[in-house]
Write a protein that binds this DNA or RNA. Structure first.
Lengths: 121, 121
DNA sequence: GAAACTACTTTCCTTTTGGAAACTATTAGC
DNA sequence: GCTAATAGTTTCCAAAAGGAAAGTAGTTTC
């Protein structure tokens, strides 16, 4: 009894799986979607704003995740010449292409909440 | 100089962020999207099939992630009465509602690959 | 000059995640 | 009886993720 390849291993399949892997590597971690979702609503936010808005995150994590996403050109960091220096973060145009993902995730989460009440399993 | 709430903290905002958090908690970890993407293409897959298809995963992780997703009603486990017992995994109808998310993630990943070549930053 | 604000960074620690390898149990083939 | 396949579980360990608190540095306000 030999084992035969059960899945159709076309290039399309492999490419799709690889694409999923790529995306999730860039958006890995506990906070990225949370931060992105927040940044998409308030278009320019300062570090301390994010620290207050993103519920539960600490300065270290926020700093690290922001750097991470800046490197991937998803967000833009701007230092302002104010008295106590302030820094603004905002989505880049490229980062905004993530909107459909974020929207679908938010939509699904809302439906999930609803399904917890009306058990139509 | 007092600090004022900079974001419009409407219920819609909070709900959206909460929804994102909910979804990502259910789909956390290195492998879930990978497994789900695979299961969406080949509709019924056995444990060993998945072990071979999901590149790099080990038996322990696969087992754990499958249990996790079964508990959340995203996938269904069926034990078959074959000589060496086989087990089939497939998406539930509910699990299939994740398709838009997976599709958007795959789509974005494909675009990301493309952008690595044509640098139009 | 002490306190408070900005935006971090650093240190130290715990928890979580993930992986390799070995092991369980059953059945089939040689 | 040995090997191999099925589907896992268990153990042991390393690495990564994440958090709390303190520290750095510059400026302004009292």
């Amino acid at each position: 009894m030999k084992k035969e390849p059960t899945l159709n291993n076309t290039l399309i399949c492999k490419g799709r799986i690889l694409a999923i892997k790529d995306t999730m590597e860039i958006l890995s971690g506990k906070w990225k979607f949370h931060i992105l979702g927040t940044l998409m609503q308030g278009d320019k936010l300062r570090f301390m704003d994010l620290l207050r808005e993103v519920d539960g995150i600490g300065a270290k994590m926020l700093s690290k995740e922001l750097q991470d996403m800046e490197m991937n050109h998803l967000i833009k960091r701007t230092v302002l010449n104010t008295k106590p220096v302030t820094v603004e973060y905002e989505m880049t145009e490229y980062g905004k292409t993530l909107a459909p993902i974020i929207d679908e995730i938010a939509k699904w989460g809302i439906g999930y909440r609803a399904s917890l009440f009306s058990k139509t399993d």
